[in-house]
Amino acid sequence: MVKGNFFRGLGYLGEGFRLIRQPGLRLFVMIPLLLNILLFGALFYLLAEFFGVLIASAMGMLPDWAWLQSLDWLFWILYGVVILLMLAYGFVIIANLIGSPFYGYLSELTEKHLTGQEVSTEGGWGQIVRDIPRALGREIQKILYYLPRALGLLILGLIPVVNLVAAALWFAFNCWMMALQYVDYPADNHRVSFKSLKLNLQDTRLTALGFGLPVALGAMVPVLNLFVVPAAVCGATAYWVRETSGQPALK
Rank of each mutant, 00 (worst) to 15 (best):
C175M: 15
I55A: 03
G137D: 02
G210E: 08
V228G: 07
I140C: 00
C234K: 03
V221Y: 08
G60H: 07
V2T: 13
M220R: 08
P32R: 04
C234T: 07
V92K: 11
G80K: 01
L34A: 14
L43A: 08
Q181S: 11
F50D: 14
S107V: 00
G157K: 04
Q117H: 05
H113Y: 14
E49K: 04
L13G: 06
R130E: 15
L180F: 10
V81T: 05
L213F: 14
N174V: 11
C175F: 00
Q247N: 12
I20Q: 02
L201E: 09
I155L: 12
G4N: 01
K112H: 12
Q69N: 11
V183W: 05
G4P: 09
G235K: 02
I77T: 12
W125T: 05
M220Q: 12
I155N: 00
P222L: 05
K198D: 01
V82I: 15
P230M: 05
T207M: 06
E122Q: 10
A216E: 07
V233M: 03
D184V: 03
D188I: 01
V229Y: 14
H190E: 15
A179V: 04
F17Y: 08
Y182Q: 03
D64C: 00
F6Q: 07
Y79S: 01
S245F: 10
A166N: 06
L213E: 10
A150N: 02
F91A: 06
P222N: 01
G218P: 00
S245I: 03
G123E: 03
L250W: 06
L201T: 07
V229G: 08
V119R: 03
E243P: 00
A168P: 01
M86K: 14
S70V: 07
L114Y: 05
V223Y: 04
G157Y: 02
V2R: 11
R21P: 02
Y146Q: 06
R26P: 02
F44V: 10
Y239R: 01
F6G: 00
G123A: 00
R138H: 11
G24I: 04
Y105W: 07
G41A: 01
K198M: 14
A166M: 05
W73G: 03
L46S: 09
M86V: 11
